[in-house]
């Protein structure tokens, strides 16, 4: 379900930017989706396809790239990936996955460094969803 809100946010944010730039259409949008947010890409694509009708994005091409999530421990310096820690979320059932899906930075409440056990780590890549860039189309006259 979160994917529909994200799609709404993408369209709202780009619409606001287009107003600011005095342009009335967008030809290309590049999205970067971090693994941590566990976004279902088919659902996001469907939501964008449905919600962009009648907006500045109606005729645009949407390119989505996925970014692997990596962590770095602030205590011992260990680098590791989200997939290495997935098993720590499993005993929590949907609760852990849902929390991280909606609030990716809540991951610090659920996993810890595989080497030293510290929960004090940074998310060094693959965080949430970002509009990497978009290409404005026609300029308003």
């Amino acid at each position: 379900m979160h994917e529909w809100s994200l799609a709404e946010g993408i369209i709202a944010t780009i619409s606001d930017e287009c107003s600011r730039l005095s342009v009335d259409s967008v030809s290309d949008v590049d999205l970067s989706v971090g693994e941590l947010a566990q976004i279902e890409l088919p659902v996001l694509r469907e939501a964008l396809r449905s919600l962009k009708k009648g907006t500045v994005m109606s005729g645009c091409r949407i390119h989505i790239s996925q970014e692997k999530t990596a962590f770095r421990c602030r205590k011992c310096g260990r680098n590791w990936s989200f997939s290495d820690s997935r098993k720590e979320l499993e005993p929590l059932g949907d609760g852990g996955d849902n929390a991280v899906h909606y609030i990716p930075s809540s991951i610090n409440a659920f996993i810890s460094c595989p080497s030293c056990g510290s929960p004090d780590f940074d998310i060094s890549s693959g965080f949430g969803l970002r509009i990497s860039r978009f290409k404005p189309g026609g300029r308003r006259i």
Partner: peptide
């Protein structure tokens, strides 16, 4: 091209 925009900003404004 316009780069590096946070999609939450527009959503927060709408909310």
């Amino acid at each position: 091209m316009t780069e590096g925009t946070d999609p939450r900003d527009g959503l927060i404004r709408r909310r």
